[in-house]
Nucleic acid binder design. Structure first.
Lengths: 188, 188, 188, 188
DNA sequence: CTCTAATCGAGACGGTACGTCGCGTCTTACG
DNA sequence: CGTAAGACGCGACGTACCGTCTCGATTAGAG
């Protein structure tokens, strides 16, 4: 396992291969849970050789990581402006709307075996969104981030697993009141 | 496969065997993460035949489930009186103290591959602890339970993973203020 | 690789499996050269699981070894009486006749990638046939054995590879005069 | 693949490359058995590109073939005068002395995975050494050649594998009496 | 007390996925 | 523009674990 996961490989073949692998995993995730997807499945779907998989990723979790990092980045970038503007409700709504529009994918990402890895990446990226609350000395920032992100993930997962019983606006309100407002904009 | 997962088997031998399996898993969990423990490992440690394992449990996850259910039951029973008495801080302290006294075990249960299953059981049992809050119409009880339990699990996991940097009282305060008080005793 | 190649495994399943593997290899050897036969081929032909192969043999060469040892034992037992009786010609004829009757098999054993392993086993078993010649002090017994066996193998291989151009009696005469008589019955 | 296996390529660069490859293989053969040497190893040692290998040889066996052909040619040319002069003992001694002076190389060539290919080339070139024996009608010339060469190879291999237990003169005597004299100089 | 029947340890087996290795082809980037 | 460097498709290898199964020894209950 000496995979060089350099973020920007010069060789276009490598870029192409990795993109194909991510795309293949994404495609498979919409059909079956992460645990049931084998590396061979991914390789076949991506139309690359089985061994080539390992030349690019150490495990299927690594592909998921790449994939999740990308999706989460988009999600955060989407919600960021509203958070900056201290409009928690708008941020929650934007976030939920985006998730709703990619229901299959996010269901796969937030439930089943993939959840752990996605949550981890979520926390990593969530750390970048600095909360403005500096008053709660008893609450370590890192822990606040973890709890906030976990709550978000749980809320979304719960929502996604329950089909379409709850409107986007409703879940966005829950998300805002339970997570975003308390953490991001505690003083209003 | 006709696994008799009856909660209370009449045959005392079966009880003994299951107890041995749970005990073996518990013992192994203190040495290595759940994912790396094989069914064979458990059988050897429990000094039962490999095939006999499958007569009692369908998978190692099932053993973990049994184990976790038991531990979680104890945990909740420990904190319950204080919760009933609306003393969130005392409940949090009791809970954290118990966890602290079984650090190795709870570290194994709340981090690593076991976390998912344990969290699930936690949520299931957490549902029994009825919250008194009837005011938040916008927040489904089930979701409140999930978020509350998840936050608890995350806080504990974060605490356990960080060795002994934080005193029991401190993490209990966090737990109380972030989770127990808001959910359990919203009005005091 | 902790294969216990005990010659007499108590478990009948192991016996059966090994027999099936030997038989499968034998069957495949009549169709294609040894090098082109994969372990999977053998497993499929023997109708055993792929992993089970490795529980019984460390490599396909080991199966070939077993197989060859058996065949060579038969061959030597066939020629032994005549050798004992100092009738080199009869020994040679018996040997060549037997080979001729299993042409396909012996062609596979003595030509192609299998030759090396078979020759080795041949030499090992050939050492049991004590030559009566005690006069040639300049020739180590071990070397005499090697040269004798190698010559036999080469003669048979040459014969087999040339289809049916040479009668059994003719090649038996060559074998007798070149190898058996000089080595086995030097004084007549 | 249009491998130019022309024996005498006009382009000097090709000559140089092939020489480098032969030399690299020769160098590697003194360190490890033929089977364990990979084409990549050879290319690296020869300091040529991996793909360039295939422009010059179809396989590593082809390189070995080239190499062996060269060495065997030297060996035969060394022994030829003495054979011509019907001095089998001198021929054997010359041969054994040369082999002894390049022990590592010939050990690699005559034992391990390389033996088969080397033997083959040995036989091919051995056919050039016409034996004078015309009396044995029952023995095809081709077969005589094969048996003679094989015996030679086996004797040398046996000698080389046994370290330095036997003096050059002793093994030369064996070689002469067992192979050269009977075949080359049947009438004296 | 004997003899059959059930039980349980031990572990062989079929199966599936893994991660590695080497080959031979083919693309890319560099001089 | 040609050559090194090396990514790639391919396919065999040997390993690990699962869940099923068969075997043999031990024991229990019936006669």
């Amino acid at each position: 396992m000496q995979v060089a996961e350099a973020s920007t490989p010069s060789d276009p073949r490598i870029k192409r291969t990795r993109a194909a692998l991510c795309s293949a995993l994404l495609s498979l995730l919409e059909e079956q849970p992460f645990d049931q997807i084998t590396i061979r499945d991914i390789a076949v779907r991506a139309e690359i050789g089985y061994a080539t998989f390992f030349r690019n990723y150490a495990s299927k979790a690594a592909v998921l990581h790449d994939l999740a990092a990308d999706q989460i980045r988009r999600l955060i970038e989407l919600a960021f402006p509203a958070i900056e503007g201290r409009n928690g409700r708008a941020a929650a709504l934007a976030l939920c709307t985006y998730v709703d529009e990619h229901r299959r994918l996010w269901t796969a990402l937030l439930t089943g075996g993939a959840a752990g890895i996605v949550r981890e990446e979520f926390i990593r990226q969530g750390a970048r969104v600095k909360t403005m609350s500096s008053r709660r000395a008893w609450l370590p920032l890192e822990l606040a981030n973890i709890v906030g992100v976990s709550a978000t993930v749980e809320i979304l997962a719960w929502w996604l697993q329950r089909g379409l019983g709850l409107a986007v606006e409703e879940i966005a309100r829950v998300l805002d009141q339970l997570v975003i407002s308390p953490f991001v904009k505690p003083r209003g």
